[in-house]
């Protein structure tokens, strides 16, 4: 409550000022716990260095998770009876603001280290061999839900378009302006699917029409919806939430 009044009173100020006040607030919370007393010697007032340390640890955790990632380890699959109904909607906007993509004009754009960059229409994508999975979607917030997704195995699609699978990253740009990226090892995992159906129906807009990349080995925010284009690269592409401080690898 206190925080909210603070935010409204801050409206109109520069984002930099707000950020610095937020950072100070965040440190104060740490201090109120007596963390300062325990950090004696370490200069906690220099908040930049604390943030640098935390960011560094997050990069270290990317490496640890990549090391732990076993390309052959399959996410547990569930029976139809275990499916969560209704399946929760989650995005940075509310359900009544869901982005509507026109399927007739839609074309999936391909960029970067891909041999055949011809855009794909929905009928062409639907004609590819399809497979299904019932897996647990785990949100970074902590909640989880089980759903059924169907689509083309992403590794098959990448092979078909001649993607350079020795590259490090695949980035995604979405119709709702969201963007994220994943590591190549995860992209090639057998359960990573480019999905067009949810619960045996064409993906409704709220679950990501026309397509969602379903990655059961990663947290929910690493599963982009409304994908408009994708690119293969060796340059670290980051992502919206990742650039704000969420861990990039975010594997399950």
């Amino acid at each position: 409550m206190k925080k909210r009044t603070m935010e409204t009173s801050l409206a109109g100020h520069s984002p930099k000022l707000i950020r610095s006040i937020e950072r100070r607030l965040f440190l104060k919370q740490g201090l109120s716990l007596g963390a300062l007393a325990l950090l004696a010697g370490c200069d906690l007032t220099d908040d930049e260095s604390v943030q640098k340390l935390l960011t560094g640890m997050s990069r270290w955790n990317d490496g640890a998770q990549a090391w732990l990632f076993n390309p052959n380890k399959l996410a547990p699959e569930f029976p139809e009876s275990a499916i969560t109904k209704p399946f929760p909607f989650n995005a940075f906007y509310s359900v009544d603001e869901v982005t509507l993509v026109d399927g007739k004009d839609y074309k999936l754009e391909l960029e970067g280290l891909i041999r055949d960059k011809k855009p794909w229409t929905l009928p062409e994508l639907y004609a590819l061999p399809q497979t299904s999975q019932i897996t647990r979607h785990i949100c970074v917030e902590g909640w989880s839900a089980i759903g059924k997704w169907s689509g083309v195995r992403f590794s098959d699609f990448l092979a078909r378009v001649g993607a350079d699978t020795s590259a490090k990253y695949i980035g995604f740009k979405c119709a709702d302006d969201y963007y994220t990226s994943i590591d190549m090892a995860t992209a090639l995992h057998p359960q990573t699917l480019l999905t067009f159906r949810f619960a045996d129906q064409i993906l409704p807009p709220k679950y990501g029409f026309p397509m969602k990349l379903r990655i059961p080995t990663k947290l929910g925010f690493k599963n982009p919806k409304h994908i408009m284009s994708m690119f293969v690269t060796n340059e670290y592409p980051g992502g919206y939430w990742e650039d704000q401080g969420y861990n990039w690898f975010s594997g399950s």
Partner: peptide
């Protein structure tokens, strides 16, 4: 109560949690 927590927001808290873990 948020006053008793560390991190300021979810991403900050996760960073602290997975750093202190090591």
């Amino acid at each position: 109560p948020n006053e008793l927590t560390l991190g300021g927001w979810l991403a900050g808290a996760l960073q602290w949690h997975f750093a202190a873990m090591w």
